[in-house]
Design a protein around this nucleic acid. Structure first.
Lengths: 171, 171
DNA sequence: GAAATTATGTCAGCGATATTGACATAGTTT
DNA sequence: AAACTATGTCAATATCGCTGACATAATTTC
């Protein structure tokens, strides 16, 4: 007694829980966890009239000072046009400095100023606090499992060392 | 011999690793994990000319068929104006149905069609696969720890049962 | 039953962040 | 000298969020 194929445009009334072994609870949990994880810095950013894009740029420039523009584009996986406005604002506000590359003078190495370093720390503090709270009571093994899980969720091994994949030339 | 306060606008050259006990590696890992987690459905969505917003609506309507518009707004934490365009497209494309509420006829209960249910499953499949792969080799305890961690990253207990906090009236 | 409130929808405009395409300039490599 | 590379910029467009204002129908309150 399967439902007939004619039942098109009938409302489906069964809640989606488990189907084909798909864990919807976990999928949803990841969504909520990330939403709240990013909400902390978002509040601070509005005071500076910055958005999430500024946060990402600031984070990576602080993580690896001297990063070139091409490397940054590669980590963020956005276009140079998208980066330009955000980067310009961070430079104008004195959070990031551009210094001409020494070996290749076409390159612009990006460095945080002390102001930029301070803001990066200010943004990371509530996120770190949230993580620390979430990890309370966990054993070393459990913490290691969480890190392994997160690492395995990432597609490739590009995280740490951007490989300077060249930007396409527009001709 | 601390650096002098006069060193304003000097580039900060030290990479940001650990500072005040802030785990930047973990913060970054969460960013990459989520970015790649959402990239799977994003690829599928472009085929339907839908975006991430459609995905979220489709997900929650499938999770809890019969959800009212106000409940959906509460879960998503967006305004009705933001929802309207996306919801209209999902209705026009035959993925979601609106049915007048039985007790309160002002309410519109949202249900997926079979087509909408299928798309929700199609979008969840690669995400579930990624999670399953990332969990391979984990013990039951380790998996439980990961779930506890993610749950603890969420701010309140609003996840499952939306509390129908009323939308502000615009007068 | 009239008045207030609620649930939803809609129009108009705006802002942030992303995109593609095209072109310019300076510096490096061949 | 020619080709290529790193970066910057102008212009147009798309998505997804926002605020404000108003409309309609249904429900609740007085």
């Amino acid at each position: 007694m399967k439902p007939l194929a004619s039942k098109i445009d009938e409302p489906v009334r069964s809640p989606l829980t488990r189907h084909e072994g798909i864990d919807f609870d976990l999928i949803e949990l990841i969504y909520f966890a990330y939403r709240d994880f990013t909400s902390d810095p978002d509040v601070i950013l509005t005071d500076y009239e910055f958005g999430r894009a500024h946060h990402r740029v600031l984070h990576f420039v602080n993580r690896k000072p001297g990063l070139t523009v091409a490397e940054l584009l590669d980590v963020l996986r956005i276009t140079k046009q998208s980066l330009s406005r955000v980067l310009k604002q961070l430079i104008d506000s004195g959070h990031i400095l551009q210094i001409q590359g020494t070996t290749d003078r076409r390159q612009r190495e990006l460095y945080p100023t002390q102001k930029g370093r301070n803001l990066a720390l200010e943004l990371a503090r509530p996120q770190s606090r949230r993580i620390r709270t979430a990890l309370t009571g966990m054993t070393t093994e459990e913490r290691a499992a969480i890190e392994r899980f997160l690492g395995a969720m990432v597609t490739d091994g590009q995280q740490q060392a951007p490989k300077a994949v060249p930007q396409m030339h527009e001709d």
